[in-house]
Design a protein around this nucleic acid. Structure first.
Lengths: 174, 174
DNA sequence: GGATTGTAGTTGACAGATCAACAGCACCAG
DNA sequence: CTGGTGCTGTTGATCTGTCAACTACAATCC
């Protein structure tokens, strides 16, 4: 389990890897957020939600599915979606089969906004993250990061709803 | 520059790498935080601040130096430090040479708390992050992540204060 | 010296997210 | 069909951190 020396200080590559992991994340997310807000009045979180919806069947997803994908709390998602509903990008819909679930559905306006913002966002990701690596390195990185907790699969929708994840995902609307 | 195709959707390894990066970070930090709070009533941020102070000369650092290292705003650091002062882990000190700067100095109580919490925290980092990689892989990872913005060097103290970073850093008090 | 410019830190107002508690519904056991 | 258990989503209270504005001081230029 490699936890035998758990009380020894972190050293060398281990420390660098960990620090790099933490600090780069903070810096990149902050800048992506600033970019998206400046150009589209949209948060990275907002964008993420719109994106997930755009990839789902009928462009809708139960709240809890959004919660899992975004790593937010259910209550966090409720409030985030509230905001997007106020802006007209999302509308709520009820589920016929299970009256507990409430779908968040992407509106046409939301889809349009997502397309616009997507250009900015993908450009940002490439500039701040992808452009620093070669294709081979990206594969290495993907493989390494996939072993970490939370990164596995992304989590399916546990509700019996029709929210089967599409086979090929993308990070901007195509 | 590799930004020529900036409007194309992210695919394959690029997408996996990026998703893994985001999701693993959220999951790991959340769990580390829960661990530390449960066992020591301390946030990861709190821990980070105490750690940086413990590594500095005289166990003190100007607020802005803390701000750079933690990737927090100056105002964020003010409030975080306020909390740690209330808990008696940090005390404020003024600078003789520059009346604008205010040092945060680690108290003995804070140092003790840091030592205790360090065991939990390092164990958590090893369990959630390090244990998934070999030594060679950690070197690769460190090298790859070091290219990302925000991960470079960690930033020195811009104030003329005596806060020269130590040559060998560690991630827990030794 | 005196004015200008820039830096360090704090504060008020606010956004973002969490936790705990709750209401409504599904489902299984009896 | 009735009761218990568990899941979904929302709400109130709270916390954390940001932004913008401000004070106080330093440094530079005239």
């Amino acid at each position: 389990m490699a936890v035998t020396q758990s009380s020894s200080p972190l050293r060398g590559a281990a420390l660098e890897a960990w620090r790099g992991y933490l600090q780069s994340h903070a810096g990149i997310v902050r800048e992506l957020d600033a970019d998206l807000i400046a150009h589209h009045e949209l948060t990275v979180r907002d964008y993420e939600v719109l994106l997930y919806l755009s990839q789902a069947d009928d462009r809708q997803l139960p709240m809890s599915a959004l919660s899992e994908r975004t790593m937010l709390t259910r209550s966090g998602i409720t409030r985030l979606v509230d905001g997007l509903v106020d802006q007209g990008m999302i509308e709520r819909a009820s589920c016929e089969r299970d009256a507990r679930v409430s779908y968040a559905r992407l509106t046409d306006a939301g889809y349009g906004k997502l397309r616009d913002a997507g250009r900015t966002h993908v450009a940002g990701i490439e500039r701040l993250f992808l452009s620093h690596f070669t294709a081979v390195e990206l594969e290495q990185l993907a493989e390494l990061l996939s072993r970490l907790p939370g990164a596995t699969g992304g989590g399916q929708c546990t509700a019996g709803g029709p929210a089967a994840p599409p086979a090929t995902e993308s990070c901007s609307v195509e």
